[in-house]
Amino acid sequence: MATFATSDQLLVIIDPAARQTDGESVRIAKDVLSAGAAAKVCLPEGPEEFARALGRRGSRRPVVIGDGRALARTVALLHRRRELAGCALSVVPVGDGALAESLGVPRGTVAAARAVLDGAERRLDLLVDDSDGVVLGALGIPPAPVRAGAAPPVHVLLGRPWYRSLVRPLASRPLRLPAVPAPGPTRLRVEVDGETLVDLDQPVETVSVTPGCRGVAQVEVRPLSVGAAATPLLTSGRTVTVTGADFRYRADTAVSGPVRRRTWRVEEGAWGLVLPRRAPAGEAAAVADA
C-alpha cells in the first residue's frame, strides 16, 4: 500500500455537476486540499474538458470532486487509455456519495479531503465487460425501478449500497422523476467460470455481481418466488456471462443495454484508490483497550 506526502502535487478536477449541486462543499474541499498540498484546480465545463484535464495531469495526482458518476467516468477514461494501473486516484464525494463510500472513502467533505492528503493507495478489483465497460462497486440485472417524485432509493446487494441520492439543489425545486414500473421476472442464463448457475427455463427476479477481493467476484441470483421466498443462489468466480432476451443492467450509477449477451471478468488490483490508512495492529488494539 503506497503512502503519499502532502508535498505531492495534486490535480483537482471539479465536476460541473458538483459545482451546481453543492457549491459550499466544493469550496470546503478545495480549501482543505489547497492548504495541505500544491494543488492545480481545474473547472471543466463538460465531459470533453474533463477528459482533457485528466489527460494532461502529468505527474500530478488526480483528485476528483464529484459524485459517483464522476468517479466511474474517471476510472472508465483511465481504463480506456490503459493508464489505470499507474494512476493513484482520489475522490472527494459531492452529491451522491454512495459509490465512493462503499469503496471506503470517508463520509463528509473534510474527512474525504483529509484522506486525499494523508491516506494511502489501495489496489481494488474491477469488473470489465466485453465492450470495455467497467464496474467499480455493483452490477445489477435488471436495473432497480425508480419511484415517481423521488430520487432513486438505496438498494443494497450483498452488503453494498448500490445507489443513493444525496443531491441538494441550491436554488431549484426538488428533482421530480417520472414513474418507472418495476421490472418483471426475466429469463436469463447465468454462467460463472463456464458453469451454468441458472438457465433460461428458470425465471429470475434479480442478478447481482460485485467485485470481491483477490480477483473473485461475488454473484447472487434470486429465482422467481411463488409463495415462500426462494433461496438465493450464491457463488463466486472470475468471469460471469449473462445471456437473455434484450436485458438491461445497472453498472454502478449508469444503466446500459439492452443487450442479449454480456461477459464480465474480474481484473485483480486493476486500479488504485487513495483511502484512509489502516492503523497498525498494535495501535488498533491499544485504541480498543482504551
Rank of each mutant, 00 (worst) to 15 (best):
A5M: 07
A5T: 06
D8I: 00
Q9K: 05
I14E: 00
P16V: 03
E24K: 03
V26T: 14
V32R: 00
L33R: 01
G36Q: 01
E45K: 14
P47K: 09
P47L: 08
E49M: 02
A51T: 09
A51I: 13
R52M: 07
A53W: 04
G55N: 09
R56C: 04
G58D: 05
G58K: 13
S59K: 13
R60C: 02
R61L: 15
R61W: 04
V63G: 02
V64Q: 00
G66P: 04
D67A: 12
L71S: 06
A72P: 03
V75I: 11
A76Q: 11
L77I: 13
L78D: 00
R80S: 14
E83V: 11
E83P: 05
A85Y: 07
A85V: 09
G86R: 13
G86H: 10
S90Y: 02
P93S: 02
G97V: 00
E101P: 02
S102G: 13
L103C: 12
R107M: 11
T109V: 15
V110Y: 00
A112N: 01
D118W: 02
E121A: 15
L126P: 00
L127E: 10
D130C: 10
L136A: 08
L139C: 04
P145H: 14
V146E: 13
R147W: 03
P152S: 08
P153V: 05
V154G: 07
H155F: 02
G159C: 06
Y163G: 01
L166N: 14
R168K: 10
R168H: 10
S172I: 07
S172R: 12
L175W: 12
L175Y: 10
P178N: 02
P181Q: 04
P181A: 13
T186R: 12
R187A: 09
R189A: 11
D193P: 00
L197Y: 10
V198E: 04
D201M: 14
V207M: 06
V207Y: 01
S208G: 11
E220M: 15
R222A: 06
R222M: 15
A228H: 14
A229C: 08
A229Y: 03
A230K: 11
T231V: 13
T231K: 04
P232S: 15
P232N: 08
L233M: 14
R238A: 05
T239I: 03
T239H: 04
V242Q: 01
A245M: 05
D246V: 07
R248T: 09
R250N: 08
R250L: 06
A251R: 10
D252H: 08
D252C: 05
T253H: 05
T253E: 09
S256R: 15
G257D: 10
G257F: 05
P258L: 14
P258T: 10
P258S: 10
P258D: 15
R262N: 08
E268W: 06
W271V: 03
G272Q: 08
P276K: 00
A279F: 12
A279L: 12
P280L: 07
G282M: 07
A284R: 07
A285N: 03
A285V: 03
V287E: 13
